[in-house]
Simulated assay, not measured.
Amino acid sequence: MKRFYAIGFALLLAFDTLNLVCFKLAGTHALPVEMNLAWALRVFSYPWIYGAVVGYIGAFVTWMSLLKHAPIGPAFAASHMEVVSVMVLSYWVFNEPVTPTQIVGAIAIVAGIACLAVAEGDEGEHDVVPA
Results as ranks from 00 to 15, higher is better:
Ala14Gln: 07
Met1Tyr: 08
Lys68Ser: 09
Ala26Glu: 03
Val98Glu: 06
Cys22Pro: 01
Ile109Lys: 00
Ala111Asn: 00
Gly58Pro: 06
Ala52Met: 03
Ile72Gln: 11
Met35Ala: 15
Gly73His: 08
Ser79Met: 11
Ile113Leu: 05
Gln102Gly: 02
Ser90Gly: 14
Ser79Cys: 10
Ile103Arg: 07
Ile103Leu: 15
Met35Thr: 11
Phe94Ser: 07
Ala59Trp: 00
Leu66His: 02
Gln102His: 04
Val54Met: 09
Glu123Lys: 14
Ile103Val: 15
Phe60Asn: 12
His80Leu: 12
Val54Asn: 03
Lys2Thr: 12
Trp92Leu: 13
Ala106Tyr: 02
Ile72Leu: 13
Tyr56His: 12
Val128Gly: 03
Asn36Pro: 05
Arg3Glu: 12
Leu67Phe: 12
Ala108His: 05
His80Cys: 09
Phe9Glu: 08
Leu89Tyr: 08
Gly8Tyr: 04
Gly121Asn: 15
Ala6Ser: 09
Val86Asp: 04
Met87Pro: 03
Leu18Ser: 03
Ala78Pro: 04
Arg42Asn: 14
Val104Ala: 12
Val43Arg: 05
Pro97Leu: 08
Gly27Lys: 03
Ala26Cys: 05
Ala75Met: 11
Glu125Ala: 10
Glu125Gly: 02
Tyr56Phe: 11
Phe60Cys: 13
His29Gln: 12
Leu20Tyr: 13
Trp63Thr: 12
Leu25Ile: 07
Leu13Pro: 00
Phe9Pro: 00
Val98Met: 10
Ile103Thr: 10
Ala30Val: 02
Leu116Ile: 01
Ser79His: 08
Val21Trp: 01
Phe76Cys: 08
Ile72Asn: 13
Val83Phe: 14
Ala40Cys: 07
Pro130Leu: 07
Glu123Gly: 06
Asn19Phe: 08
Asp16Lys: 04
Ile107Met: 11
Ala6Leu: 11
Ala14His: 05
Phe9Thr: 11
Asp122Ala: 13
Ile103Ala: 15
Val86Thr: 12
Gly105Phe: 03
Asn95His: 13
Gly112Pro: 01
Val104Cys: 07
Gly27Phe: 01
Met64Val: 12
Ser90Phe: 05
His126Pro: 02
Phe76Val: 13
Leu25Lys: 11
Ala40Lys: 03
Ser65Glu: 13
Asn95Cys: 08
His80Asn: 14
Ala111Lys: 00
Leu18Ala: 04
Glu120Trp: 04
Leu31His: 10
Val43Lys: 02
Trp39Val: 02
Val61Asn: 09
Ala131His: 10
Trp48Asn: 06
Ser79Gln: 09
Ala117Arg: 03
Ile113Asn: 01
Ile109Ala: 01
Ala30Asp: 03
Ile7Glu: 03
Pro97Arg: 13
Ala117Tyr: 07
Ser45Arg: 09
Val98Ile: 15
Phe15Trp: 05
Phe44Val: 13
Cys115Gly: 11
Ala75His: 04
Ala30Glu: 05
Leu18Thr: 05
His69Pro: 05
Ala111Trp: 00
Ala30Pro: 00
Gly112Cys: 02
Ile49Met: 06
Val129Arg: 10
Leu18Lys: 01
Val128Met: 13
